[in-house]
């Protein structure tokens, strides 16, 4: 039976994605490095502050890995949570693993911790870029129930590649935030089909923001992560300028589109309205060579 990545806990995901029994946790729950802020707010803390960090192996290669637990405060980044992530990334500069895997699931900054959370996310961003600059790929896996939004949405796009399932969502402001600030006419966050085709993995892949769409299965994420170990990112200034130019053209090409389906049609995909119904393999076949 396939194991759903979406339904699994952060610990189950790590165990399934990495080589069996290879994961060694750093600052495990028994270390009790918990949030100093939540207790002051009379809110229960988690022994791992909602993130598991450590080292293990992927296809025999040494990797560092972190997994955010969406079940605890939506995977939101507090001071300790962020510090564990920064510490892991900085460790990569010393131990030089083959890659760093980030199994993200987060609504962004933990608002309970306000500025401490915001600073933590900015430190994570700087650390990701330092690791990439040292030639170590940072690979994001996004397929959890809470998706990846806010500051963690930015972090994900700073990494070398994003492996995503349709259920995995990626964005800056989440659907509820857009509806609250701009009104239900702008975005109905309870319209699941609208939410998935706008912030879901298929659209993110077609826009070129995610590198690969996979089925909602831990084995599929593992296989894609192993493929991503072979990536050799081009970090030259020319490549960066090409990326910026492509992003600038994106608004020119698709600025008049009112729905993701209009963009898929503009990309030359026939009968784009069927895309949400396709399995990952069929989707990848039909959309090959037609990504923005």
């Amino acid at each position: 039976m396939t194991q759903s990545y979406y339904e699994a806990s952060a610990r189950e995901r790590l165990a399934a994605v990495l080589d069996p029994s290879s994961f060694q946790e750093i600052l495990p729950p028994s270390a009790r490095v918990t949030s100093p802020h939540l207790r002051q707010l009379d809110t229960p803390a988690a022994f791992d502050d909602g993130i598991i960090v450590g080292e293990g192996r992927l296809d025999g290669q040494p990797v560092l890995a972190a997994a955010q637990e969406g079940g605890f405060m939506g995977g939101a980044v507090g001071e300790v949570h962020g510090a564990k992530l920064v510490g892991l990334l900085e460790r990569a500069l010393d131990t030089r693993p083959t890659a760093v895997l980030l199994l993200v699931e987060s609504g962004g900054v933990r608002l309970h911790e306000a500025n401490a959370g915001l600073i933590a996310v900015s430190e994570v961003m700087r650390a990701v870029l330092a690791v990439r600059g040292a030639g170590i790929p940072v690979i994001v896996l996004d397929g959890g129930q809470f998706g990846c939004f806010g500051g963690m949405g930015i972090v994900a796009r700073l990494c070398d590649t994003v492996i995503i399932s349709e259920e995995g969502r990626l964005g800056l402001s989440g659907p509820e935030v857009i509806e609250t600030t701009c009104g239900v006419e702008e975005f109905d966050s309870r319209d699941r089909a609208l939410v998935w085709r706008t912030v879901g993995g298929k659209h993110r892949t077609l826009l070129g923001e995610a590198g690969e769409l996979v089925a909602d299965a831990t084995a599929a994420f593992r296989a894609a992560a192993i493929r991503a170990l072979a990536l050799t990112p081009d970090l030259s200034l020319e490549a960066l300028e090409r990326e910026h130019a492509a992003l600038g053209q994106r608004i020119e090409r698709f600025g008049d589109c009112h729905d993701a389906v209009d963009i898929w049609r503009a990309l030359g995909i026939e009968a784009p309205e069927r895309l949400p119904l396709l399995e990952a393999a069929d989707f990848n076949t039909i959309t090959a060579g037609k990504r923005a």
Binding site: S9, R11, P28, P29, S30, P44, A45, A46, F47, D48, G50, E69, G71, F72, M73
Partner: peptide
């Protein structure tokens, strides 16, 4: 030496046994 079950989420709990 220790084991953890559950998640600190609404209607749920985490239990650390050491």
């Amino acid at each position: 030496a220790s084991a953890l079950a559950g998640v600190v989420g609404s209607g749920n709990l985490e239990i650390l046994v050491e």
